[in-house]
Write a protein that binds this DNA or RNA. Structure first.
Length: 484
DNA sequence: ATGTCC
């Protein structure tokens, strides 16, 4: 599949019209600079046009500027479906349900933290389980885990692992209300209950970052978000629902492939786009199970924040008030949510799939905590361990993409190629020169996650801004990182 | 992403 027919609408906005491929119900919009679009794999255009052919899709299928090839949907895909006529697809959400980002500010500066950096990273690494198959300190019974799946971050508040402000500054306040454990397999529950408070593997990490004064693009918004001192330390982390969400996605992909297509007369261009009508019992069951995984992931990140606060206090010998580890925001980038949007001039209840895409609410949104209603939602874009990450804010122009923005840099090469191409010695030498201290359970992960394996994050941010999806606030550069 | 293959 080639990209013939792709046309440029604006400096950073491109369209695949419905004539691009037979069966497309709506056009595709892709945000990206010429450079990013040029570097996109042809598979991205193929995949997102398949998405635009799914039953009940509304308005446009979107691909964010960090888009790359994924399972069925591209990573960076956004699609809204009519809640009555449309479908829900596990491939449009991702195997790692509610994979997301949390950003935490502190009252420390790099100068103050620097002497303790190594000890801090070593202690975080020993306290926060990371890596494939990692199990957490909380060994929950099935009944406790069931409560956690229904209550999300509220469970953590009840157990003393969260503060009220943490919940207020989490998407959906850390709980999707439609969770129903009866839709989750025994196997998924058994995998999930030991994994609360664990980071995972691959590109999941926890990173200590610095907000250098030269990297602040919007001082007023940064200050509202709690970043106001030169070289202030912040902590960003990225993880999801571990084997729990993965098992739920696997269970329902199998079910949808086996039953739903024949039963509901659905045909898809790619078997990886297995789906069910959202309103049908099978679609509702997956959605309710998905909400359980979303809640597990919110709780997972909340427990990690709790561990982070403990370690900072212990290593630095300071109380919580002195370390000042306050959550800026927590946002999911692998989910489906029921939202109200204007499509064709009519307000409609729609199911928005965001896979590798961040919700980005505009200023004034009532779904934001009051302190952020003037600025818009904090949008957290995680970069590679070498190149830095960005904090942006939602803007009113984001209405065109169902208020969605990019989520990361996006890979430019597969893990296998990265391992083949990059020398571990060179990466380690470079990290030392750049003064980035990393602890990882696997040396191979270092090559897979090396900076050059990813797109230029500054270019992704430029595209997000130029396409009117979100506005840059501050770039954050890494000094310490733990990963699986 | 993932008890990295049922």
């Amino acid at each position: 599949m080639k990209r013939n027919g792709l046309r440029q609408l604006e400096a950073a906005l491109w369209e695949l019209p419905v004539s691009f491929k037979k069966g497309m119900k709506v056009p595709v919009h892709i945000a990206g600079t010429e450079k990013l679009i040029g570097g996109m794999d042809d598979a991205v255009f193929d995949q997102i046009s398949n998405v635009a052919s799914l039953p009940g899709i509304l308005d446009r299928a979107w691909c964010m500027p960090d888009g790359h090839k994924g399972y069925g949907f591209p990573i960076g895909g956004v699609a809204a479906f009519d809640a009555e006529e449309g479908v829900i697809s596990p491939g449009g959400i991702g195997f790692d349900i509610n994979c997301g980002m949390r950003l935490v500010t502190s009252s420390l500066t790099w100068e103050e933290l620097r002497p303790n950096l190594r000890e801090l990273v070593d202690t975080l690494y020993s306290r926060i389980p990371a890596g494939v198959g990692g199990e957490g300190a909380l060994n929950l019974s099935l009944s406790e885990f069931s409560d956690l799946c229904h209550e999300g971050a509220r469970w953590c508040l009840k157990k003393g692992y969260a503060g009220q402000e943490d919940l207020a500054r989490t998407e959906d306040e850390g709980c999707m209300d439609d969770a129903d454990i009866s839709a989750v397999s025994r196997e998924a529950l058994e995998r999930g209950r030991t994994q609360v408070g664990t980071l995972g593997s691959g590109n999941h990490y926890l990173e200590i970052q610095v907000a250098e004064p030269g990297n602040v693009r919007d001082m007023d918004t940064a200050a509202v978000f709690g970043i106001e001192r030169p070289n202030q330390i912040v902590v960003m982390f990225h993880c999801g629902s571990r084997g729990f969400g993965h098992q739920i996605a696997t269970d329902y992909l199998k079910l949808f492939t086996k039953i739903s297509h024949a039963k509901y007369g659905i045909s898809v261009n790619d078997r990886e786009l297995a789906c069910a009508p959202f309103a049908a019992p099978e679609g509702q069951a997956y959605y309710r199970a998905m909400c359980c995984a979303a809640n597990m992931a919110f709780a997972n990140r909340q427990i990690i924040l709790h561990l982070l606060r403990e370690v900072f206090s212990e290593v630095l010998g300071k109380g919580p008030a002195e370390t000042g580890l306050r959550q800026i925001y927590d946002v999911t980038h692998n989910t489906a949510r029921v939202e109200t949007h204007l499509t064709d001039g009519v307000e409609k209840r729609v199911l928005v799939h965001r896979k590798g895409a961040t919700r980005a609410l505009p200023p004034g949104s009532v779904d934001l905590p009051p302190e952020y209603r003037r600025t818009g939602q904090p949008v957290i874009i995680g970069g590679s361990m070498e190149t830095g990450s960005w904090l942006l804010a939602g803007v009113s122009g984001g209405a065109r993409s169902f208020f969605s923005s990019a989520h990361g840099s996006g890979r430019v090469m597969g893990r296998r190629q990265a391992k083949k191409q990059f020398s571990l010695d060179e990466i380690e030498k470079r990290l030392e020169e750049e003064e980035i201290y990393i602890r990882s359970s696997s040396r191979g992960v270092l090559a897979e996650e090396a900076g050059p394996a990813y797109k230029d994050i500054d270019e992704v941010v430029r595209a997000s801004e130029a396409a009117g999806l979100s506005a840059p606030v501050v770039k954050l550069v890494p000094v310490g990182n733990i990963k699986g």
